[in-house]
């Protein structure tokens, strides 16, 4: 698991790749939360899941923390490019109701 980042139209795009599981969730949490704390904290974030093959509940927990953090900071989180089997788990969990999920990164960026 690694997280690459880019800035597009003033929006921070984070792209985790590989597998977010119980072994790697803490690395994911550190990488993500470092970008939303401190003086340079980002408040507008797209999370591109194109390269993500697997996520379990420990990784979904991090997304919930991130979404709550951005919500409190009057910011915004949009997820995109999620594989079907991951989207299924998000639907079961009701995450598709509380998080914005778009099919493509272009569409995600258009939500800001």
């Amino acid at each position: 698991m690694n997280v690459s980042e880019a800035t597009k139209d003033g929006v921070l795009v984070l792209s985790p790749a590989g597998r977010i599981d119980t072994r790697t969730a803490s690395d994911f949490e550190q990488a993500v939360m470092a970008r939303v704390t401190g003086p340079d904290a980002a408040t507008r974030i797209v999370m591109n899941f194109e390269g993500l093959d697997y996520i379990n509940s420990t990784g979904m927990r991090v997304l919930l923390i991130l979404a709550k953090t951005l919500s409190k900071a009057s910011g915004k989180l949009v997820l995109c490019s999620m594989k079907d089997h991951i989207f299924e788990v998000f639907k079961i969990s009701g995450f598709n109701q509380i998080l914005t999920i778009t099919p493509t990164e272009e569409e995600a960026l258009s939500r800001f």
Partner: peptide, 11 residues
Amino acid sequence: TSLPLTERPIG
């Protein structure tokens, strides 16, 4: 799973 974001517990 029907709770809004602000009320969803972590974990």
